[in-house]
Design a protein around this nucleic acid. Sequence first.
DNA 1: GTTGAGCGTT
Length: 447
Amino acid sequence: MSQYIHVAENEGDEPMEVPSEDDGTLLLTTLSAQFPGACGLKYRNHDTGTLRGIRLSDGRLYPPDTDWGRHLYIAVFPKGEKVKENSTHSSDSSVSVKSHKRFERQKCSDLIVLGLPWKSTEDDLRKYFQQFGELLMVQVKKEPKTGQSKGFGFVRFSEYDSQVKCMAQRHMIDGRWCDVRIPNSKEGAQQMMNRKVFVGRCTEEMTADDLRHYFSKFGEVVDVFIPKPFRAFAFVSFADPETAQSLCGEDHIIKGASVHISGAAPKASENFSSRYDRRMVPNHAHMPYQGSWGPGRGGNPNHGNSNMATGMGNNMGIGNLGLGAMQLNHAMLAAAQAVLSSQTGWGPLGLTHQSGATTTNGDPIVVATTSAAAPQHSISSSYAPAPPLGTSNGAIVTTGGAGTGANNSFLGWGSQTAEMPPVPHTVATSQVHSWGTVPGKAGSGWN
DNA sequence: GTTGAGCGTT
């Protein structure tokens, strides 16, 4: 028996009625059609005064009791996603607002949609994805002869905001969970906007604070890295990639010495592992928070991540360290490469940071083995499909029964099959489980 | 007419 359910974006907002299905469930797609990006529902339980999450399984929201009753339901959004204009108080929500602002400038790219049902047509895709915003292109790849779908397609939004929203969740399309990612062929496009510059010909007198202070006049400096012992170069990371780009190729005078600025090259480990053979870094495939820690565009102050997405073409490795032609010898070049390599945030614990290296920000280098540490830093959390950790959204199953698989089905991260794997006991492992089902491509952080 | 990790006839 179908009924209309009262849903609002916030408590106190004017509710909107959304229809349930004949079996009494509410399709997540129905909800998100009216509340784009919504990933769940909650309501105020007046017995306890607390918010109660609504069970979500296989794209269906289940009524809290025998039916939906007269509760006012609140749409739940992935963490950091609900960046609306009506959030006037930008004090505590400054993080998501900031990231939003940063993303506004970004351009859309084609997105690959994986896992489509064989029967899904381009019309189906268009109908589904237009809830996130205006679509510029929709494709379903088919066998040329038979016209049979290959099970994947491409979409392109006109607004980057739509793309971010769309990528922040999985998608139930015609009964299957589908993933939306940046296509392999497009990775690297973003990397042209590296936030980090290489500063060559540094003198020993230049401290990290000196560099930070000097470069701050061009834009917000997120990080300064000076290898120790002294090697006559440094890395400066800006919050805005455009700032970094604008400085590339220039010579600047700092403390009476002329330094040369150029784009920081990707690490060798990134180049080889992600380009040549991803099996060389099996850890990546199991790392949680690939998404949120990915492209390092979120102003993440940690070294390890600012390079995560700098996988430019294979021909832009050592040779393009941009050391200012012939200013530095081979040893120095190798040293720079080594330093870049050593900044891998994903490496073994002991190798995370070069000993003695200085940083101007006081933050400790976070090794991404503890999941809870990640999102707090991560301004780019809008990339993170609010991993199943997101109980704070209140959208996690609270009712009993088969709800033990709740975490796995949250936002659809998990198995395609109805039967869920054993429920992990900790949040951390649950993330590994859920995210680990997406193999490879960890380096780019775009998927 | 089957299938289920991937990566786009232009």
